[in-house]
Amino acid sequence: MPEQTTLSSSEVQDQVTLPLRVAFGICLRGIRTRLGRSAITLFGVGLGIAFLMAVLSGFHIQRAMSAHAALARDADRRVAMLRGEAGALKGRAFLVLARGPSEADAAFLRALAAQGAVLDSGSKPSGCLVLGGSGPEAPMPSGVPIFAFDSQVAEAAKALAAEGQVVKHLGIELRPDEVARAQARERQARYRTAWIAGVALLITVGCIANAMLMSVTERFREIGTMKCLGALSGFVVKLFLIESLLLGLVGAALGCAVGVVVPLAAYSYTFGLVRVFAAASFAMLGLYALLCMAAGVGLAIVAAIYPARVAAKMVPASALASHV
C-alpha cells in the first residue's frame, strides 16, 4: 500500500495566484479571435439595452414636450386674460411682484414681453402683476390696479381691496373634483409608464441572458479542458467575469447610443428639431443612459457568471461530456 504524502501548501499557492493580467490577456484574445461570435453576443446585449433606453428616452421626450406645450398654452391664456381686463398690452408698463417664480410664470412673462408690454421699467407702472408663491412682501404701489394670478394671494388681495385698491383676480380656481380628476389622470399615466418600462426591462433581461448564456454554455467543454489542465474554478469564473464585463460595457454603450439617437431622430422628424431639443433635458437622458449601462453590465455579468460557475464546479468529466 502506498504511503500517504501530502502536498505542501506553498507549492499549491504558486498556482492559486494567477495574475489578473494573464486572465485579461486570454479574454481579450478570446474575444478577438471569436470575433463573429462575440459580435452576436454584443448585438444581443446592445439590442436589449437599446430597447430599454429607447423606451425610457422616448417617454422622457414625450413628457418633456407635452409639458413644454402646456406651459406655452397656459402663458397664452394668461396673456389673453390680462388683455381682457387691462386692454391692449403694447407699450404698457407693469410692475412684477413675484416670490419664487415658477417655470409657468417665467413663460408667462416671456409671452407678455413678446406682446410688447414693458416689465419693471422703473417708470410709473400702469398695473401690478402678482405672481406665484405666498402673499407679496414688497409694498404694493397704490393707485394702480393689481392683477393677481395666484390663488394664494387671494387673502392678501382681499385685504387690499378692502382698502379701496382695485384688485383683479385672474387665476383659475379648479373645483375639487376637477383637481381629483387631473390627479387620477396623472397617476394612470405614471402606472402606464412604469408598466411599459417594466416590460421593456424584462425583454432586455431575456435578450441579454440569452446571449450570454449561449456564449458560455457552448464552451462547457473548454471549461472542462481548462480544469483538466489545472485551472482552478476561480480562474475560469474570472475569465468569464472579465469577458462578460467587456462585452457588457461595449454592448450597453452601443445600445445606449442607439437608444437615445433613434427616439430623438424620430420625434424630431415628426415635431421638428427645435421643439424636441428645446423640451428634452439632456441631464435626464444622461441619467437614463447611466441606469441602462448599469443594467446592461450587471445583467451581462450575472447571466455569464452563473453558468460559468456551474461548469467550473462540475467534476471535469461531466463538463467534458456535456453537449449543448
Partner: peptide, 29 residues
C-alpha cells in the same frame, strides 16, 4: 479523495497529462 479543490487542480496541472479522443484543444489559441 482527500484533496481539496486547490490540491486537485495542482495535481491535474503537474502530475497528470491528458489526451482526449476529441483532442479538446482551446480553439481560439
Amino acid at each position: 479523495a482527500q484533496l481539496d479543490a486547490f490540491e486537485l487542480a495542482w495535481l491535474r496541472c503537474r502530475k497528470i497529462g491528458y489526451i482526449f479522443q476529441t483532442f479538446n484543444l482551446i480553439p481560439v489559441m
